[in-house]
Design a protein around this nucleic acid. Sequence first.
DNA 1: TTGTGGATCGCCT
DNA 2: GGCGATCCACAAG
Length: 208
Amino acid sequence: MISSPPIDPGWFAGQDTVGMARRLLGQLLVHDTADGLAAGMIVETEAYQGPLDQAAHSFGNRRTRRTEVMFGPPGHAYLYQIYGRYVCFDVVSGPVGAPEAVLVRAIAPVENLPLMTRRRGVGAESAIGSGPGKLTQALGITMAENGLPLWQPPLYLAHYRDPWPSQAIAAGPRRNIPYAGDAQGYPWRFWIRGHPSVSRPSGATAES
DNA sequence: TTGTGGATCGCCT
DNA sequence: GGCGATCCACAAG
């Protein structure tokens, strides 16, 4: 059962985006729908730092219909569709006017595995949330939730466990941003070392 | 086990 | 008109 209430709105303010990417690891992402409540623990994130980050949608302060939410206050959901079929989930970070966000790349199932398995159509538990398009499908997150605050139902974050010791967190380059020039190498992807639900390039062995 | 290609469509130029 | 912060099926070895 979910014992943790939604996170305090103040949690989102005053943290830099990389710090938020690290501190989101181990938090619970919860979505309550007509089909039921489902939740997973965040095990992999990526920081996208607005104007100066060539990998970010908001590079150069690009402000469009899609990126608009990122220019608003932190703690809201930035959702976008990719390849016409998948939805990716970000947490808006930084002060108003700073278009920064943290992409949640992977979750581990915690609550309502049967519902998440049905939505995903796969058997293996480690495949339920081990990718940005997978976790939104597992939790039933759609573009309709774009811009929602993440400190209240139906879509919210909740404390789940104590912060990980720093040696349990690994950092490395972000995935799938070949267009990003120098930013390709920035070590702004964070994951829980050795966790089976961390995303993998194709199906290879888990990285440490 | 690893690599390749197809799906699919909204958003931006 | 082109492409993407992806995923999966399938083929080759």
